[in-house]
Simulated scan of single mutants.
Amino acid sequence: MATPKFIAPANSFYSELKRRTNAYFEEIGTHPTGNYKLYTKAAVLLSSMVLLYTHLVFFTPPVWLALIECIVMGGVTAAIGFNVMHDGGHGSFSKKKWVNELAGLSLNMLGANIHMWTTKHNIIHHTYTNIDGVDDDLDARPFLRLCENQEHLKIHRYQHYYFWGAYSMLYIYWIFFTDYVKYFTQKVGDIPIKKMSTKEHLSFWGFKVLHFMLFVVLPIYTVGFLPWLIGFLVYGMFTGLVLSIVFQLAHTVEHAHFPMPAQPSNKIEDEWALHQLKTTANFATKNKIVSWLTGGLNFQIEHHLFPRISHVHYPEISKIIKEACAEFGVAYNEFPKTRTAILSHIAHLRQLALQPVLLQR
């Protein structure tokens, strides 16, 4: 489908949000990108990844310890994606462009590709959030039905039971399949990817080969095929599960909207900022451990409204946005705990497991 348009009122809600947010940073005299807290966290996560990898590949720990380390390494991989790559990819990790690019390249080291991700995430998902047929994050077909506009298949009757298994395959499927589909078709769904330069082509293949050597060839050489296979599956599946759960809790929960553009105008009825608030939800924002590990992605509303502000500032920014929403009568979707958000996501999947005729409004 053609990319839809949003209404553009003269005095938009987003203009007021930007004015208040800019005033906050001027008042405290701080740049909206990352600070020492983020850089310290990045160092801890990257060092942990190197240490875990080195111990698993070169020191052959006992089976029970190796399995634990594979799970921990999967969590660390997801955390690097949430904290380092994500801020870098949005240009909010640092004031310096080259530092942001370096942080973004951490995704390439972990097997995916920053160029593909930037188109899929920054351009498409952040603009057309929860619009079926455009937002590629909603396309988990044929395994899952994530919004009521999508076709209902018999398998979907059980999706609220088996989704854990589907989510666990995300990372492996991503690095070994979907990246290549995007590369060879030069599209994310139906939307063309910006033409890749020679440098970007070389980066794609160079990092894919490097990752294959580091995470497939070398471990098989040092520990053998079967131990590698079991370890990599445990690692990759836990990574995929963590990545999927965090992203799904932000948009595919109860009360989240999945609007479709009006025809024939192909317009969304809201301005862009209101669309983001209706399609996005926060969770566990009072939990500092969750916030630290997820790179502030539990403050998803703040991230979607201000993706170029580093997540280290979201707790304060959220106060400004909540206050403005209350004044303007705009709903602010938030779950107090991670488990309540997970239960809401399961309830959403269960509702979509019903036949489409039962979901008509």
Rank of each mutant, 00 (worst) to 15 (best):
F177N: 11
F163R: 06
Y128R: 02
W174H: 04
Y162T: 11
F176A: 03
T129K: 04
M169Y: 09
Y161E: 00
Y161L: 15
C147P: 12
T178Y: 12
E151F: 02
G133V: 00
Y183V: 06
A166K: 07
Q150K: 05
H126I: 10
H125T: 07
T118I: 15
W174P: 05
F163I: 05
G133K: 02
R157L: 05
I155N: 09
F177R: 10
H152I: 02
A166G: 09
T129S: 15
Y158G: 07
Y173I: 02
L153M: 05
Q159S: 02
G133L: 03
H121F: 10
D179R: 08
H152D: 02
W174A: 01
P142V: 05
L170M: 14
F143G: 04
D179K: 06
H160W: 15
C147K: 02
L170P: 09
H156S: 00
W164I: 14
Y161P: 05
H121P: 10
K182M: 12
V181E: 12
V134G: 02
H125W: 11
D135M: 04
D132E: 14
T127E: 13
T118P: 01
M169W: 04
I131K: 00
F163G: 02
Y183R: 10
L170V: 09
Y180R: 10
G133C: 03
